[in-house]
Amino acid sequence: MQALQTLIHNLAIILLLATFMEMLLPNKSMRGYVQLVMGLFVISAVLNPLTAFLKHPLELEIPAWTSAAPQDMPVLAADGARLGKDAVEEQYRRILAHQIRALALGVGGVGEAQVEISFAETSAGLTDQPRIVGVEILLSPAQGTVEPVRPVLIGGEAQNPKSENPVALDVKEKVAKLMEIPEETIVVHF
């Protein structure tokens, strides 16, 4: 009953947000794009309780809502505002890390990927988007693939072997383009 109440409450707010966002749009041609994202938002909101109801709980990588409210946390501790902000940042970090990992695994020759993201220390609000200052991706080759032998340079300039790898460069370029992160903040180890 509690789950149903939460679902209806959150769905009402999501639909209210969707309507408000549509009103904010400058032209009708972009309406479909906002509707697409808000539709995915609704699917994400419905999917989690539905799978729990069907006794097949599914942990979504981008959850529509969190069970713990950041604004509840100040009650628990004196420096609760900072804790709340940290919780929001941690959730955002997990979502981003998963997305970058999925992008990296989509590149041929990558078997496993570990992603570390660091944010800038800011005095922004609870729900403000944190600024990404560094992304570190550790790639492992897929099983069965043989890493090509790197060309041996004799007497040439010393270069960073990690940045030479074409797979690492491909992952870096893909992540920079799709996640809109500056390429210089991304470090890929292969």
Binding site: I13, I62, Q129
Partner: peptide, 22 residues
């Protein structure tokens, strides 16, 4: 909008994306 989403425990990720679209 951010306060509304915050009070409803709604993920800020979606809100940020929709605001970027706008």
């Amino acid at each position: 909008l951010q306060n509304l989403a915050d009070q409803a425990n709604i993920s800020s990720y979606y809100l940020i994306i929709v605001l970027k679209i706008v």
